[in-house]
Computed example of a mutant assay.
Amino acid sequence: MALREIRMFEDDILRKVSKPVTEVNDHIREILDDMAETMYHTPGGGGLAACQIGILRRLLVADMGEGLLKLVNPVITEKKGEQLVTEGCLSFPGIWGKLKRPEIVIVHAFNEYGEEIEIKARGELAKCLCHE
């Protein structure tokens, strides 16, 4: 595992659309591991998308205190309720905003082994998955 550089502020890659992952393999697992290590070593890190380390692939890691999630090609398939949240971003340190997010989301994705999974997230984790 390695720490990756987090892209900041005006980096163009942060505004580009990430492409789906076509095969979950050792290279993808290595990227997910690096993303997790980078997130855990960055103050305030609860989630990280691959574009934030310069990789335009639909990958994310998140840990809001319930354990590490490593997601490949995540898609929010359902949203319920509403919550007012304060949220920041590792790519925009020191900037916080208040906004509305769903209280509950259902996410379909693949795990790091290429297995289909469904996650029902509430509260902070729902906020994080929407953000990433």
Rank of each mutant, 00 (worst) to 15 (best):
M1A: 10
A2F: 06
A2S: 15
R4M: 14
E5F: 06
I6K: 03
M8A: 10
M8L: 15
E10Q: 13
E10C: 02
D12Q: 15
I13C: 09
I13Y: 13
L14N: 08
R15K: 13
R15C: 03
R15S: 09
K16R: 15
K16H: 09
V17N: 11
V17C: 07
S18T: 13
K19A: 08
P20R: 05
P20D: 12
P20Q: 07
V21S: 04
V21E: 02
T22S: 11
H27A: 15
R29Q: 12
E30S: 09
I31N: 03
I31H: 02
D33I: 02
E37C: 01
E37R: 13
T38M: 08
T38Y: 07
Y40T: 11
P43F: 10
G44D: 00
G45M: 08
G46K: 14
G47H: 04
G47T: 11
Q52D: 04
G54N: 03
G54E: 03
I55E: 03
R58D: 11
L59P: 13
L59S: 14
G65N: 03
G65E: 03
L68S: 06
L69Y: 04
L69N: 12
L71G: 11
L71V: 07
N73D: 02
N73P: 02
P74R: 06
P74L: 07
P74A: 01
V75D: 07
V75G: 02
I76E: 03
T77Y: 01
T77S: 11
E78H: 12
K79E: 14
K80N: 07
K80C: 01
E82D: 04
L84D: 10
V85W: 10
V85A: 10
T86W: 02
T86V: 08
E87T: 00
G88S: 00
G88L: 00
G88F: 00
C89Y: 12
C89D: 09
C89I: 06
F92N: 08
P93C: 00
P93I: 00
P93T: 02
P93M: 00
G94F: 05
W96R: 09
W96Y: 15
G97N: 05
L99G: 02
E103D: 14
E103L: 13
I106R: 15
H108F: 10
H108Y: 15
A109C: 12
A109D: 15
F110T: 10
F110E: 15
F110I: 14
N111Q: 14
N111D: 15
E112C: 13
G114P: 07
G114A: 10
E115Q: 13
E116T: 13
I117R: 01
I119M: 07
A121E: 03
A121I: 03
R122P: 00
R122A: 11
C128T: 11
C128Q: 01
C128D: 02
C128M: 14
L129H: 08
L129E: 09
L129W: 08
C130W: 01
C130G: 05
C130V: 15
C130K: 01
H131Y: 05
E132L: 13
